Each structure stands twice: as C-alpha cells, then as structure tokens.
Amino acid sequence: MGDVRFGVDDLGRLRFAISPLWETVAALRATTDPGGHALHLPWLKQVLTKDTDPARRALLPHLAELPALAPPPRCPLAEIEEELPALAGPPELAAAVRAWWKAGVRPHWPRIRAVLEADLAYRTRQLSEDGIQEVLTRLHPRLRWAEDRLASADLPAGTLALDGLGITLAPSAFAARCVLLPARGGTPPCLVYPARAVGTLWERREETGDALARLLGRSRALLLSGTSTPSTTTALARRTGLSPGAVSQHLAVLRDAGLVTGHRYRREVYYRASELGASLLDA
C-alpha cells in the first residue's frame, strides 16, 4: 500500500496531460500479455505481425528499464518527437521507441488520442463541478482519499510527499491499473490511470446515414457523428480528412444550430454533440 500526500499548494497545481511516449511503452507492454488486454484484441491482431515484429522485438529487452529512463510528461498535449529527447542519453533506445511508435502506435494514434482527449474533457468538467477529491477518487476503484492523502495498493509502498510540486494526471488507453511516475528534473510526478470508454476504442465506425447527410450535408453529418465524445478541431480534422479551417466553419454552423457545444480546456476547445445533436444522431 502506498499513498501520495497533498499540501494546500499541490491541490492548486493539478494538471492533465496526454503522453504519446508513455502510451507507446504501455502499448508494448500490452503485446506481452494479450490475454490480459482482451479489449485490445482487434489492435493486437494488427500489430502482432511479421511487419511490426522487428520493431517490437528490438524494444522488448528494454521494457523493464523504460519507466526509469522516460520522465513524466511535461506539457498537456505533447507530440512524441517533443518527448523523445528525454531519452537522448541512450540514443539506441530512443531509436527503438521511435520505430515501435511508427509501426504499432502511430497508425492508430488518432483513435487513441480521441479517447484520451474525451477523458480529459470529462475530468476537467468534473473538476469544475465536483472538486479535486472527486476527480482523484474516481480515477480508479482502487484509489481512496483520506485526510490529505490519496492511497492505493497499486501505488509504490510508502508515502510520496508532493511538497508543492503538484501532480499530473495522464489517462492511458493501455494501462490496466494506476502507475505513479516519480518527479524528475523539476517535472512534477505523474499518475497514469486507465482512461474511460476504452471499450469503444476499436469499435467499427459505421458511415453516417444518408438521411442525416441529406439533411445537414455529408461533411457536417460526419462531424456531428464525430462529436459523440468530446473532440478538438484538430482531432476531427485528422479523423475526417477535412482541413482544420473547414472543420471550424462546419462546427460554427452546428453550434449555432444548437447541435454541438464547446468546452475550453487551456488552449483547446472540445466539441461535443448537444442533447439535441445526440437525439438527431440516435434517430
């Protein structure tokens, strides 16, 4: 049993992040235990092939040492090329991570990132409505809040005092439990936790119905269906193939019609189908 002790300053220094580097490491770990990651079987069938095998096997011997070498995420929405310099000490390892990222994770990253962004939107809304303690204890059923501490059998034994550094919360599509990454080089510690709605990650996405496309136009119908979970303009552009400018214009029309709503988190706006928009999609 371990716990994290929060001070008054730490409660005000909670932040969220998405880390492609840590998702790449967690994805590699998932390939070593397919039975324990049944939700990811559609993905596993695609990546456990002879084409991706060289990149995966080159990195597997380093799986145990990666957590000690890769730091917790520094910024909320980093790209992997921004995170890889942290592995500059072992250049061969950085090259192996990059190769596995390109072979096994990058082709699926738009889907994965959409789930992670949706989780962030949910947590930030929960933070504003219910407070930090509710956010922390709802990250995972095994987490418990008592007085000034967050405790779990999943955390390293002993007490980690944040001492004013704060903490970063990072959702993961591949994590089966919470993982605590210690502070490093002035970067606050990070609690990696299983993201919500991972069960929807590999579901087949059916084409938007012709009736809805005739009503709204195919592009707007496609975008409306893409906001069933909170998504940014950039994420929607990646998923639909539309330019960011076109996505912004269509979203403005959908928002003015009351079909989507926008929620700002830092420098990003997350769009989600409104009650009216969701009813239209269901119909």
Rank of each mutant, 00 (worst) to 15 (best):
A246G: 15
W43N: 03
V198R: 04
L63W: 10
A257M: 07
D148G: 00
P110A: 09
Q133F: 15
E203W: 01
S128D: 15
R272C: 12
C190S: 10
Y265M: 01
I167N: 00
P54F: 09
V135P: 09
T24N: 08
W43R: 02
S231D: 06
E203V: 06
G217R: 12
P90L: 14
G226I: 06
R29C: 00
A213D: 02
A221D: 07
P194G: 08
A235W: 08
A237P: 01
L160F: 07
T137Q: 14
P20M: 07
L63D: 00
H263S: 14
R196H: 05
A99V: 09
Y271W: 15
K102N: 15
I18L: 14
R15I: 10
A183I: 12
A95T: 08
E275W: 15
G104H: 03
D163F: 01
V269K: 03
P107N: 09
A170E: 01
L165P: 01
H40L: 12
G164F: 07
A151C: 02
T31C: 05
R123K: 15
R5V: 06
I112D: 04
R238D: 15
G12M: 11
L21Q: 05
L127A: 12
C75F: 14
T229M: 13
L48R: 10
T32D: 13
L21A: 08
D119K: 01
L44A: 05
I112C: 11
L28D: 06
L223C: 12
D282N: 13
R125G: 11
G89S: 12
F6K: 00
T52I: 01
Y265A: 01
R264I: 14
E207T: 13
L84T: 01
G131W: 15
A103N: 05
G186D: 14
